[in-house]
């Protein structure tokens, strides 16, 4: 199949198509190791780094929004219903449809709508886990803290957040894996990242490119998950002490 005859499925795929057009002719076998070796630092690494950047920024923003909202919702129960309804609505929108909506309301193709989408997808998971985590703090622990003279703020930061941390991190693990997956699709609206490799590879019928993208996206999701497991263990050594005796 000659990809040059296919209509471009996206602007970026089109761009990539032009860029890689010459190498394509030299393809040998299913995976062209030679191409991979020559273009690894030039094409693959930047795509991977951009993917990581996209996900990290989105997750950081999502956490910055979810933590205060989750804390408020845990305090003022009335907020929890509306919050989960709204973020739950975002969560149900198919990712492709979300991109289209964002473009429709005036965002131009690029990193911004990609990040907005990834943030919106993370909110439900993160807020729910922040609230669940805070709810899991034993009431007698909070009572003792108050009875010893900790202020509300000290109780929040020294008792409630640390104790809720394992549940919050569990939410971040789900969120990061989700975000890494959806970020692949975000390349359609100019988000960049590993999606660029995958989609241009498919468009040009160049397996080396899309297999590399897919494998890296998978490895990235697995390592991010492991990283969070490690971080949680490091931050909550006490959870391993449970029932140790």
């Amino acid at each position: 199949m000659d990809s040059a005859d296919d209509p471009p499925t996206s602007i970026l795929a089109f761009l990539f198509q032009a860029e890689f057009a010459s190498e394509e002719q030299q393809q040998k076998g299913f995976i062209d190791w030679e191409w991979l070796g020559e273009n690894f630092t030039e094409d693959v690494v930047p795509a991977l780094l951009q993917h990581i950047f996209l996900c990290a920024v989105s997750l950081a923003i999502a956490l910055a929004i979810s933590l205060p909202l989750g804390i408020l919702a845990a305090r003022y129960r009335g907020l929890y219903g509306p919050l989960t309804a709204i973020t739950g609505f975002f969560y149900t929108i198919p990712s492709f449809a979300m991109f289209v909506f964002l473009l429709a309301i005036g965002f131009s193709v690029g990193v911004t709508p990609a990040i907005i989408t990834l943030v919106l997808y993370s909110l439900l998971i993160l807020i729910r886990n922040v609230v669940t985590g805070l709810d899991s703090v034993p009431p007698e622990t909070k009572d003792a803290a108050r009875g010893m003279g900790l202020t509300d703020r000290q109780i929040l930061w020294r008792v409630e957040i640390p104790l809720a941390l394992p549940v919050i991190v569990a939410g971040m693990r789900i969120a990061v894996v989700t975000v890494i997956g959806i970020a692949v699709i975000a390349s359609y609206i100019g988000g960049g990242g590993l999606g660029n490799l995958i989609f241009s590879g498919i468009t040009r019928n160049f397996p080396t490119l899309y297999v590399t993208g897919a494998v890296l996206a998978t490895l990235l999701a697995i390592s991010a998950d492991l990283l969070f497991v490690r971080t949680e263990r490091f931050l909550s050594p006490w959870t391993r002490a449970r029932g140790a005796r």
Binding site: E140, A144, A145, G147, M148, G149, S236, W238, R242
Partner: peptide, 20 residues
């Protein structure tokens, strides 16, 4: 809070901080 720091407080479920 100032008052409570001057008064010892112990309860049935101990309320020990599990993470400390």
């Amino acid at each position: 809070t100032q008052l409570r720091r001057k008064i010892g407080y112990a309860i049935q479920q101990t309320g020990l901080f599990p993470h400390r």
